[in-house]
Computed example of a mutant assay.
Amino acid sequence: MPIALFALTLSAFAIGTTEFVTVGLVPTISSDLNISVPSTGLLVTMYALGVAIGAPILTALTSKYNKKYILICAMVVFSLGHVVAALAPNFTTLLIARIVTGLTHGLFFSLGATIATSLVSKEKEASAIAVMFGGLTVAMVTGVPLGTFIGQNFGWRETFMLISILGSVAFIGMAFLIPKEVRTTTPAKFFQQLKILGNPRLLIAYLITIFGFGGAFIAFTFLVPILQDITKFSPSIISIILLVFGLSTVVGNFIGGKLADVFGVNKVLFGAYFCLSMVLLSFNFFVQNQYITIVILILWGIFAFGSSPALQANVVKLAKINEPHAVDVASGFNISAFNVGISLFSFLGGAIVTNMGLVQTILFSSGVVFSSLFLIWIGYMINNKVVLSQTN
């Protein structure tokens, strides 16, 4: 793989740390700022909303500019935003800082995915995206457990300051390793790019991302409170469990990318989300058993993040065929879909916690993920129909 891919991976690592570390800091921030756990969950929801807005809109607005420099600028703002978060005097300021950094996250991944595929041959596109997304999953292994440990023992502000430093290292790495010019298509006009939402094949692909990947966040947003209050793990053990969970996401990410290249994205997505829904259903029944819970979390990480490269590769492939002048924006809409799902279902999770309790979030997650199987089937039928009509 080209070394430029690993520059993208480095940036993805910093972004992945901040995206998921907040889940581990929910109880700490809630206690320090004297706000409820569901309200603290808005830090996850609003960050995801920032990503959802930033991915397609900022990508379309910056499509005429040099992609390397746009990525660097995004990471500079990302780093400064975390300084503001670390120094935030109140919850409102912290929430605004999370939204701003979410905007840069969306822009980075929408451009990064298309740059990653442009650096390799067609048959290696899913693997290239898996390498970039590997930064997210490696962050789950090291960044998130470390950030959670620092937050629980030294303070959540120190965690955000550490992420700012990671972001600074990342944009320096991109400045040296990413080539100035990369192979991309000529962008269409702004409103022409946004018309891709009218393409049914891409729209179905985005819905699969929202329900399949996002559905698990009904429970995942409140995973640490579940492990503390229901499974009765101590905070120190939870940090280790998050490390193990992170390792499983790395395994799932790279296996998912390889399998998507070999068997195709539809088979990988159907298998991953069927298994994930069953794993979550099992968690609902065994949440009080510490040993079984650890096994379930390992499987959760493998199946949930094994789908990520396939989801993104699917959209990039469909866009190159159906919307060749708006591939970056199509990619951006899928990054948006990831985070619309996270935002929507983490918000739903907060409502479920408030009205029904923590455990019920697990069963709802299982049901939503299972519903994505129907969308995968629809997408498969639509794409096959198009191929057959073109053949005839």
Score class of each variant (00 low, 15 high):
Gly198Met: 12
Leu363Val: 09
Ala12Pro: 01
Gly16Gln: 12
Ala219Asn: 07
Ala74Val: 09
Leu119Cys: 02
Gly367Glu: 04
Gly102Val: 01
Ile165Gly: 08
Val21Gln: 11
Met132Ser: 05
Asn34Thr: 14
Val327Lys: 11
Ala88Lys: 03
Leu103Ala: 05
Asn334Pro: 08
Phe6Glu: 06
Asp32His: 13
Ala130Leu: 06
Phe338Lys: 00
Ser30Asp: 13
Ile196Arg: 08
Ile15Phe: 06
Leu87Phe: 10
Ala7Leu: 07
Val287Phe: 00
Val329Leu: 02
Val327Ile: 15
Asn253Trp: 05
Gly198Thr: 10
Gly50Trp: 06
Asp261Lys: 00
Gly367Gln: 08
Glu125Thr: 03
Val353Cys: 12
Thr9Ile: 04
Phe217Asn: 15
Ala330Ser: 14
Val369Trp: 10
Ala126Lys: 02
Thr18Pro: 06
Thr354Glu: 12
Leu243Glu: 08
Thr142His: 03
Ile255Leu: 15
Ala52His: 11
Phe338Cys: 01
Leu71Trp: 09
Leu25Tyr: 07
Ala304His: 12
Phe211Gly: 11
Ile296Cys: 10
Ala88Leu: 08
Ala86Thr: 08
Glu323Gly: 06
Ala4Phe: 07
Phe263Ala: 15
Thr28Leu: 13
Gly167Val: 05
Ile99His: 03
Thr221Gly: 10
Ile378Gly: 02
Ile378Arg: 13
Ala126Asp: 02
Thr117Ser: 10
Phe160Thr: 05
Ile237Lys: 14
Phe345Thr: 05
Pro38Arg: 06
Ala205Gln: 03
Ser39Ala: 13
Phe370Tyr: 10
Ile72Tyr: 04
Lys180Val: 03
Phe338Tyr: 15
Met174Lys: 04
Glu123Asp: 15
Phe285Asn: 11
Lys317Asn: 13
Thr221Trp: 11
Ser239Ala: 14
Ser30Pro: 04
Val329Cys: 07
Ile3Trp: 14
Gly332Met: 06
Ser79Arg: 02
Leu8Met: 07
Ser234Met: 06
Ser239Glu: 13
Ile298Asp: 07
Phe245Gly: 02
Ala319Val: 03
Thr62Glu: 09
Asp32Ile: 07
Arg201Glu: 15
Phe338Ile: 01
Arg201Cys: 01
Leu242Tyr: 09
Phe91Asn: 09
Ala205Lys: 09
Phe154Gly: 04
Ser30Val: 01
Val250Gly: 00
Leu71Arg: 04
Ile15Asn: 11
Gly54Ser: 08
Arg183Met: 14
Ala86Val: 12
Ile15Ser: 06
Gly81Gln: 00
Val244Met: 12
